[in-house]
Structures are given as structure tokens and as C-alpha cells.
Simulated scan of single mutants.
Amino acid sequence: MFETLRDLTPKFESLFCDRYSVSLRNEANTVLKNLGEAIVGIFIELENRIRSDPVKAAVPGGRLHPVLRYVMNYLVLICDYWHTLEQVFEDYGHRLKEYHNLDDSVPSSSLLSLQMGQIMEVLDSNLEAKSKIYNEPALCCVFLMNSSRYILQKTKDNELGKLLSNDVIQNHEAKVLYNHEQYQKISWSKVLGFLKLDDNGIVPPNMVKKSMKKKLKLFNLLFEEICRVQSLWFVFDEQLREIVRVSIERNLLPAYENFIGRFESVLELGKYDHDKYVKYQMEDIVAKLDDLFQGSSGSTKAQN
């Protein structure tokens, strides 16, 4: 509507150029002004809606939150009107300056970029608050990983990515990495701890056998529980899912192989006792890890 009326204004003014049409021209200009201010108001309202979006029940499995999908898809779509929006904010951005207490030294030409950055900042804060709902810290990390990865996808190679500052993009790249590292630490450090070998020579041989049996039993229980729970969690991006799984394998598989090799040499087990204690072969470990982050049936749909 704004674009149509703006483009028709020169023809309108040339057609109704006499002194009897002053009120008509003024009315058209007022409508254009009202439309421009209404557009600016939409962006202010969007910021307020995000800020006030309530922290309710957690999204199951750390999936993408609906408010994130809505906001990012909306911002991508409005980039089709980018040049018009820059003009609108430059001409009618006084309301935005008042709302954010910006002084006149702030150039009107930068108001749209400033508002987009503000929307992203409020969205980040909202998602951080929503992540706190999860009782499991590792799932909180998965939720935030998903969120930042989605934002990066939505800002890649398009006008939205060009508009947002490099700080916004780099911030979410750093968040993906940080939450990935935190997830690894929270979920797998205890598991890896059970695979550490007592090589200091202080522990008597009979106690080494007892210690290794206990460690392997605890490893089996914890590994099985983590895989059972986290197979219900969901990482929407296949590439990110693979990155996380490979990083787990890189840490877990060598430690497990080393532990089992030492376990078998120390205990000199027969087949029956071997199968009793060694519940997982290497390929079983890999198969279990391949099931992580798949979510329940049908969960991989409707995540764009």
C-alpha cells in the first residue's frame, strides 16, 4: 500500500495541482505519512511481542521454538521490501527515536538496521530465558545450539544477513561452538571418567580387576541411559547433528577401545565372562550414537 501510494503521488499532485485541490493533496500526503508511521510501529510492536512472549513449558527435545521460527521467517520475508523500508525508517523514524530515546545525532538512514539489531537482541534474550526451563543442562545446550544454528541458516547468503551486523552473525557462530562444548562436557565427561585406567602402579592387581569391573558396569549403565534419553532429543540440522555425533565418537571410541583392551588383558576372561561384562562392542557404540538427536517419530518434519 505504501509503495503504491508513494509511486502515485507525483501523478496525483500533477493531476490535482490547482488551488481547489489543496485539501485533497494534503489528505493523500497524510495517508502516506500514516502508512509510513504504521510500518515503523509494526517493528516496534514486533520487538514488544518478542520481549513479552511468556516463558511457558519447554519445547520437547530441545526443538526450535515457534517464536524463533516465526520471527526469523518474518524478517527474511520483509527483506523483499528492503529499499522501501529504508526510506520509510528514514522519513518516519522519529517514533522509533522516541521509543528508544535516541538523540538527533543518530542518522535516520541507520534506523532500520538499528531496529533489526534490537529485534535480534531481544530474541536472543527471550530464547536464553526459555532455555532455562529445561531441567537438564545438556538439553538446554541442545536447544540453544538449535536456535543459533537456525538463525545462521536464515541469515546466510540473503539480504537479512547483509543487513545485520557481523557481530550478530559471529555471536551466533560462537554460541553454537560454546553450547556444543558445554553439551560435550555435561553429557560425556562422567562417562569418559569411567574409562580412565589406573596405571599408577599403586593399586594392587586384585583391586585393579575389581575397579575395572565396577567402572565398566557404571559405564554401561550411564552410556545406555544417555543414549536412551538423548535419542529423544532433536537436532534439526543434519550437518550439525553429524558434527556433534562425530565429536562424541572422536572422544569416546579411542577411550573405550583402550579400556576394553586393558580389561580383557587384565582379567583374561573366557567368552561367557567376557560377554557378561563387555556389553558393547565398538560397532554397538557407534550404532547407539547414530540414534542420538533423532527425536520421536515424525519429529523431523515442520522445522523450517
Rank of each mutant, 00 (worst) to 15 (best):
E173Y: 06
R149T: 04
R241L: 09
S131Y: 13
Y134D: 00
E173T: 05
L139Q: 07
C227W: 01
S165E: 14
L232R: 15
P204G: 08
V235L: 01
L177T: 12
G193I: 10
L177P: 02
I186D: 03
T155K: 01
M212L: 10
K156H: 14
N158T: 14
L240C: 12
D199M: 08
K210V: 05
K214L: 12
I202L: 05
K213M: 13
W188D: 01
A138P: 02
N126A: 09
S125W: 03
L218D: 14
L216G: 06
K132G: 02
W188Q: 04
N171L: 09
K156Q: 15
F143S: 00
A174N: 11
S247A: 10
E173Q: 11
C141L: 04
N200V: 00
V191H: 07
Q170A: 10
M145I: 04
Q230G: 05
V142C: 01
K190G: 03
A129N: 03
F219M: 03
V246R: 03
V191Y: 08
L216N: 06
C140R: 05
N158E: 12
K175V: 12
E136Y: 04
I243D: 08
S147R: 08
K130W: 01
L216A: 07
K162F: 15
Q170N: 15
S189P: 04
L164C: 10
S247P: 08
V142N: 00
K214T: 11
N166E: 12
K130C: 01
S211H: 14
K154G: 06
F143R: 02
V235Y: 00
S211F: 10
K209R: 10
F194V: 08
K213H: 11
C141P: 05
E181D: 15
N220T: 01
I243P: 00
M207H: 14
L218W: 13
